[in-house]
Amino acid sequence: MSNIYKSIFFELLAILFLLCRRDFNGVIIFFIFHSIASLIISAALVRLIPNKYNKNHLLNIYFITVLNTLSIFVGYIASFYICIIFIRKQKSNINYKIETLNIYDRISFPEIRRQLGEGVTNPLAENKISKDTKLKILNLFSMENNNIAIKIFKFLVADNDTEIRMYSFQSLNRLKNDINKKINMAMNELDKATTNYEKAECYKKLAFYYSYMFKMELSEHELRNFFIDKTLYYINLFKETMSDGEIIFLEGEICFIRKEFDTAIELLNRSLKFGINTYMVYPVIAEIYFEKKEYQKIRETLNSDFSLKLNFSLYPIVNIWEGIK
Rank of each mutant, 00 (worst) to 15 (best):
D191G: 00
I129H: 09
L18D: 00
L67F: 09
I152W: 01
N127D: 14
L101N: 02
K134R: 11
I317R: 02
D105N: 14
F24C: 08
R114N: 15
L13I: 04
F33D: 01
N236I: 03
I4W: 05
F290L: 07
N303K: 10
S79Y: 15
Y233N: 15
L272E: 03
I129G: 06
K325A: 04
D191W: 04
K181A: 05
S171T: 07
I129S: 06
L272D: 00
S271P: 01
N277K: 14
M187L: 12
A44G: 03
N56G: 05
N147P: 01
I98Q: 10
N122E: 14
Y282R: 08
N93H: 09
G119H: 04
Q115D: 13
E198V: 04
L16V: 09
I112K: 12
P50N: 07
Y279I: 01
K131Q: 13
N25R: 10
F31K: 02
L237G: 00
N269R: 07
S2I: 14
Y234Q: 04
F261M: 04
M1H: 15
R299D: 02
L13K: 07
E251Y: 02
F24Q: 11
R258Q: 12
I183G: 00
V46S: 03
R270V: 01
Y104C: 11
K97C: 14
Y96F: 11
V318P: 01
I49L: 12
I82E: 08
L18Q: 08
M185L: 14
T301G: 01
S35C: 15
A43L: 10
N196C: 05
F33S: 04
I15F: 08
Y279L: 07
G245S: 09
L310P: 01
V74K: 11
E240S: 02
F9S: 12
I298V: 03
E222R: 12
L302E: 03
R165H: 06
A200T: 01
L310K: 14
S71T: 04
S304I: 11
I164K: 00
E322I: 03
F208R: 06
Y167E: 15
K259T: 09
N196S: 10
Y233A: 06
L140E: 08
A200V: 04
I129P: 05
V284C: 05
L218I: 05
K205P: 02
I29F: 13
K182T: 00
K273R: 13
E163D: 07
F31S: 06
L272Y: 02
I61A: 06
M213A: 00
K205T: 05
N173E: 12
M143V: 13
N319G: 03
K136A: 09
L39V: 11
Y53K: 09
E118V: 08
Y62P: 01
K181Y: 06
Y210H: 10
E240D: 11
I82T: 10
T194Y: 07
G75I: 04
L232S: 03
I228T: 07
K182L: 13
F274L: 03
V27S: 14
I29H: 02
E118H: 07
Y212C: 07
E11L: 15
S304P: 06
R270W: 00
L45S: 13
F226W: 01
S38M: 06
N188M: 07
S108F: 05
L237S: 05
I41V: 08
H221C: 10
N160F: 10
A186G: 12
I103Y: 12
